[in-house]
Simulated scan of single mutants.
Amino acid sequence: MLIDPTGYTYCHEHLHIDLSAVKQELDCRLDHYEKIADEMRELKQLGVSNIIEVTNSFMGRNPQFIEDLIKESGVNVLLSTGYYIEGFFPPEVENETAQQLANRMIAELEVGLGESQLKASVIGEVGSSENTFTPLEQKVFEAAVIAHKETGRPISTHQSMSTMGREQVTFFLKHQVNLERVTIGHCDLKSNLTEILWMIDQGCYVQFDTIGKNSYFPDEQRIAMLVELSKRGLLERVMLSMDITRRSHLKANGGLGFSYLITDFLPRLRVAGINENEIDIMMKQNPYQLFK
């Protein structure tokens, strides 16, 4: 068992990430161990058992950091392998074949991550740029498909600003991937219901995983889309998370913190008419089915 089915799961998070060199912002280096550990202990008390940590190599992944957090907090963390989006790729993405890239992913899934005792459990977050799906990004997706077929591990994607999800799903369909083993990330950054309905109809999971990022898209509209999906009986293909990536997102640094999803967002869903069983479907059942 890779994932604990008894508690809530955050499907798309970062507990250690460093995009500061590319973004030229120190805030994009999330590495405050004690503050993150405090928040994870709080999550454990709030009923969160699992976090899917989608930071891969060259995003600042730190398996030893995560290993310590697991031991200190008791929260189960699943780590990831893959490559992010163009602009954050190492030279090997351009220089190696999809098979060679896949071999690297397979090694992290089957052998382990660096000097830690951990292995990757998820292929992710592999992504596409805003309004485009570049040839190098498609090479990474091809490598992800190879690794998925070799290991059976699920694929978690990144959409930049909720664009190119249809193209991602079409790519997986073309490569004969079982979409029940795929989750499409960042579906909640614009009014996108038609695209979300299409993706669910193809059989994949969709993530409302930027909850609390109201400067991008207000939570009220996320709730409205979730209510509409509830009315259609489609929440069995939806998962929730916050995608915390910055120091300023942490509660001790003035941000909403990881607990916002449990303490603020879920109560608002209940008020909007989404029942406890539906919350459990999104926060427990669906992540267990995909990541087990």
Rank of each mutant, 00 (worst) to 15 (best):
M1F: 10
P5I: 01
Y10W: 03
S20A: 05
S20P: 07
S20I: 08
L30R: 08
K35F: 11
I36W: 07
A37K: 06
E39G: 03
R41V: 06
G47V: 06
V48H: 09
I52P: 03
G60I: 08
N62Y: 13
P63E: 10
G74I: 04
V77T: 07
S80V: 07
G82R: 03
Y83F: 15
F88Q: 03
V93H: 07
L101W: 02
R104Y: 05
R104W: 03
A107N: 13
E108M: 11
G114I: 01
K119Q: 13
A120D: 01
I123P: 12
S129I: 11
Q138L: 10
K139V: 04
F141C: 03
A147C: 03
E150M: 02
T151F: 07
R153M: 12
S156L: 13
S160R: 14
V169A: 15
Q176E: 15
Q176V: 13
V177I: 14
E180M: 13
E180P: 07
T183N: 15
L189S: 04
N192A: 13
W198L: 02
D201H: 13
C204K: 09
C204G: 06
F208H: 01
Y216M: 14
Y216A: 08
F217E: 05
Q221D: 06
L226T: 12
L226W: 11
S230Q: 15
K231F: 07
L234G: 01
R237Q: 14
M239T: 04
S241R: 01
S241E: 05
G254R: 06
G254Q: 01
G255W: 05
Y260M: 14
I262Q: 13
L266I: 15
L269Q: 05
V271Q: 15
V271A: 14
N275Q: 12
N275G: 15
D280G: 01
K284R: 14
N286H: 12
F291I: 05
